[in-house]
Amino acid sequence: MFVHVVNFWLKKDLSEADRQKFVEGVKTLGNIESIKTFSVGPPAATDRPVIDRSYDFCELTVFDDAAGHDEYQVHPLHLKFIDDCKHLWEKVLIYDSESI
Results as ranks from 00 to 15, higher is better:
L10S: 02
L10M: 10
L10T: 05
L10E: 11
K12H: 13
D13I: 02
D13R: 10
D13E: 13
S15F: 04
S15I: 02
E16G: 07
A17T: 10
A17Q: 15
A17E: 15
A17C: 02
D18A: 13
D18G: 01
R19G: 01
R19L: 05
R19V: 11
Q20S: 08
Q20D: 15
Q20I: 09
K21S: 14
F22I: 01
V23I: 15
V23R: 11
K27A: 12
T28M: 09
L29I: 04
G30Y: 09
N31L: 11
I32G: 01
I32L: 06
I32H: 00
S34L: 10
I35N: 04
I35G: 05
I35R: 03
K36M: 14
T37D: 08
T37E: 15
S39A: 13
V40I: 10
V40Y: 07
G41A: 07
G41C: 02
P42I: 05
P43Q: 08
A44Q: 08
A45F: 10
A45K: 09
T46A: 14
D47H: 13
D47I: 10
D47F: 13
R48W: 06
P49E: 12
P49Y: 07
P49A: 14
V50T: 13
V50K: 09
V50H: 11
V50Q: 14
I51N: 11
D52Q: 13
R53H: 08
R53F: 05
S54F: 09
Y55R: 06
F57R: 00
F57V: 01
F57W: 14
C58A: 14
C58Y: 07
E59F: 12
L60E: 00
L60W: 04
T61Q: 00
V62D: 06
D64V: 04
D65V: 02
A66G: 05
A67T: 10
A67H: 05
H69T: 00
D70F: 03
E71S: 07
E71D: 10
Y72D: 05
Y72K: 01
Y72A: 00
Q73A: 15
V74D: 11
V74F: 07
V74W: 03
H75M: 09
H75L: 09
P76W: 04
P76G: 04
L77D: 13
L79I: 06
L79C: 08
K80S: 12
F81T: 03
I82L: 12
D83T: 11
D84W: 01
D84P: 01
K86P: 01
K86Y: 11
H87V: 06
H87Q: 14
H87A: 12
L88D: 00
L88F: 01
E90Y: 01
E90S: 12
K91T: 07
V92D: 06
V92E: 10
V92F: 02
L93P: 00
L93T: 13
L93A: 14
D96L: 09
D96K: 06
